[in-house]
Simulated scan of single mutants.
Amino acid sequence: MFDKLEFLEEKHIDLSKKISDPDVINNQGLWQKLVKEHAELEPIVEKYKEYKMSKQGLADAKEVLYDKSADDELRELAKMEMDDLEEKITNLEEELKVLLLPKDPNDDKNVIVEIRAGAGGDEAGLFAAELFRMYTRYAENNGWKTELMSLNETGVGGYKEVIFLIRGKGAYSRLKYESGAHRVQRIPATESGGRIHTSTATVAVLPEVEDVEFEINPNDLRIDVFRSSGSGGQSVNTTDSAVRVTHLPTNMVVSCQDEKSQHKNKEKAIKILKARLLDLKVREQQAEIAENRKSQVGTGDRSERIRTYNFPQGRITDHRINMTIYKLDSFMEGEISEMLEALITSDQAEKLKQVENQ
């Protein structure tokens, strides 16, 4: 580990020189690439510097402690400092291990979130709408922007399906753990007998795909246009602006009709399609690499029940990490950071365990 840290520190110094070089600055493409690489190394290098300073401080304190010419008070202070530094060094070593874990290349990307009503009829649609509101509130709390891409309403205030984009640095790194089946338990407003019903909605979180990363052969696409319509079949648009894109090799279909412009609807549909296709490709690769091994968090299995929202008890339980929070009202208002932090910590612990067992 320490050989790697020394190497990264030297690389960081080298990058600092390069990004200050006028010749490199004039080459904006190269300069931006090196600046990004420099910024990614910064937290690791700073933590390693703090670690080395603590190790030096510990060595200095030991020297005082074992110096027979030092007075008792000075040696007692050195002993106290040693105890503090030994604890700090242990913590810093754990932090450095986490920082050295392989970084998900998608972590800094924007995300496309797809929410679909599952079992439970109208109640499932209402729950899907509430999840959409929860994630948009969370995005607002982080200063991120949201953009609606596709919406299919139920007619009673719920959603059969909603697809939206969240733009924000690190959005994928935090929201990727939300993929899976979400279950709600509560008494619906239409239930006269006061019985608790169980409904579900599925969430898929996909990293936004840049054009340079993933290209689709135009010959693999079938583009159909049709007239947009609202709930109940009411006409929203008198022109054929809605677009349906079919990826022929996989038979994957995406429809968009929220924009008045056919061009914009086509653009959004292809963006969603690219994200889905890349996600499919990545999951197939992961399945090949680890056929029977599942990590504790974030398996990406869309059928996996990951969380239960129990309204009568005011609790949310995440089944992957066996964590329960009794703050349902604020959670549904987008205050989901506590749960996300726990998921990230659990994921990191699992990855550390795998690295140590290799």
Rank of each mutant, 00 (worst) to 15 (best):
A349P: 01
Q185G: 06
M53P: 05
V184P: 03
I19E: 00
V254R: 08
F311W: 12
L65C: 02
G314S: 14
F2A: 08
A201D: 06
A342H: 05
R116L: 02
R305C: 09
S16L: 04
M323D: 01
T345P: 03
F311R: 11
T308A: 02
T246S: 13
K327I: 10
R133W: 07
R167Q: 14
T202N: 05
H182V: 02
E304W: 05
S16V: 00
I316S: 01
K145H: 08
E46I: 01
R133A: 06
G334C: 10
R320Q: 02
L343T: 02
L5R: 01
A78N: 03
Y159K: 13
L221H: 02
I223K: 11
N27Y: 00
Q285F: 10
G298W: 01
D318L: 00
S192D: 07
D318K: 00
E40S: 00
G170M: 03
M53S: 13
N217D: 15
N310E: 04
A275H: 05
Y177F: 15
L34A: 02
D240T: 03
L15S: 00
M80Y: 13
G194M: 05
D224S: 04
L77R: 06
P102R: 02
D71L: 08
N292S: 12
D3L: 14
N141W: 05
T90F: 15
Q262W: 14
R244M: 12
Y309C: 08
